[in-house]
Simulated scan of single mutants.
Amino acid sequence: MAGSNFVDYVKIFCRSGKGGAGSAHLRREKFVAMGGPDGGDGGRGGHVIVTGNRNTWTLLHLKYKRHIFAGHGGSGGKQGSSGADGEDRYIEVPLGTVAKDAETGEILFEITEHDQQEILVKGGRGGLGNMHFKSSTNQTPRYAQPGEDAVERAAILELKVLADVGLVGFPNAGKSTLLSVVSAAKPEIADYPFTTLIPNLGIVSYRENHSFCMADIPGIIEGASEGKGIGLRFLRHIERNSILLFLVPADAEDIRKEYEILLNELRQYNPELLDKSRLLAVSKSDMLDDELIEEIKQDLPDIPSIFISSVAQQGITELKDMIWKELMNANK
């Protein structure tokens, strides 16, 4: 997926359809005296509906089409005929999309399943025809209800990537390299900060035909929760991960300190993220000997940890085992 094609935040303006007016028609036939009211109801205005599509991965299609209007309902007719309902407008979004009211920030709904449908803006009801107002004291009502007005709403659609495992680490921690080794994903990899500018997803094959989804989240820096770097933009994607896999390179000055900084950024952004299962992988460990590994282990945080090297293929199988075990515990 090209970086320019990944859009995870878009503001749209929607308007539902106006309800059709009811008819005040009176029956007129040559051999029927005093036929009475026979006006039909107006049709419902069209809804604006958001629907989930598992084959969609971005909100790009909404980037240049941000005004979405549903059709108006038709007016009622004679002989009790109802007006046609207005045409509904459907917005297809990836799974993991959250819809918010742009003015209040209120979360309206989340799309998490394929073909799930939620009404973003409800169409106006059609007006009742004069048939409904006939009574013993008013046998010839010459009035009917107008249709309800259209409803307008500015909404924000925000995509939060759905994945079993989210990779958390500073730029150049080796997240993209790990994803390229354990899955068929082909993220851009280079030796400079912020190579990864979009979340990359990869399906990791496991034993006995099992698999799980791993997401490479663009690098977080200290102060990301305050808007520094690009981490703030992508911190929301971590909210949908079942497990957080922290990656700290073996050549870091202080592995525990880097882990604490990353953890603090998550805490500042959303304290609930700390409730997720956490694992630690010390990457680029092929440069360490056994004695140094044992020495580093003494100062690691109190979470399951492992030493790996994506390039040398060291510890990758053991890492998969650790992740799978944690996933099974998380889903109990």
Rank of each mutant, 00 (worst) to 15 (best):
M1I: 08
D8G: 15
Y9K: 06
A24E: 07
H25T: 13
D38Y: 03
D38T: 05
G40S: 12
G43N: 02
R44E: 03
G45L: 06
V50T: 10
T51S: 14
T51P: 01
L60I: 12
K63M: 04
K65S: 07
Q79M: 04
S81C: 04
E87K: 05
R89E: 02
L95D: 07
G96E: 14
T97Q: 13
A102H: 14
A102W: 12
T104Q: 11
E106W: 01
I107Q: 13
F109G: 08
I119N: 00
I119G: 01
K134D: 00
S136E: 13
P141F: 04
A144Y: 00
A150P: 01
V151W: 04
A154V: 06
I156M: 06
G169T: 01
P171V: 03
N172A: 12
K175A: 07
S176Q: 13
T177S: 15
L178M: 05
K186Q: 08
A190C: 03
Y192P: 00
F194K: 03
T196R: 11
F212K: 12
C213A: 10
A215I: 09
I217E: 12
E222G: 02
A224P: 02
E226T: 00
E226Q: 02
G229H: 04
I230K: 13
F234N: 09
L235I: 11
R240M: 10
N241T: 15
N241F: 15
S242C: 13
L245S: 14
F246M: 02
D251Q: 13
D254C: 12
I255A: 10
R256T: 08
E258G: 11
E260I: 00
R267Y: 10
R267E: 06
N270Y: 07
L273F: 10
D275F: 07
V282K: 11
V282D: 05
D290H: 01
E291D: 12
I293P: 09
I293F: 10
E294F: 08
E295D: 15
I296L: 15
P301Y: 11
Q314K: 15
Q314M: 14
Q314L: 15
Q314V: 04
G315F: 09
I316T: 02
K320I: 14
W324G: 05
E326V: 03
M328D: 11
M328Q: 15
N331I: 04
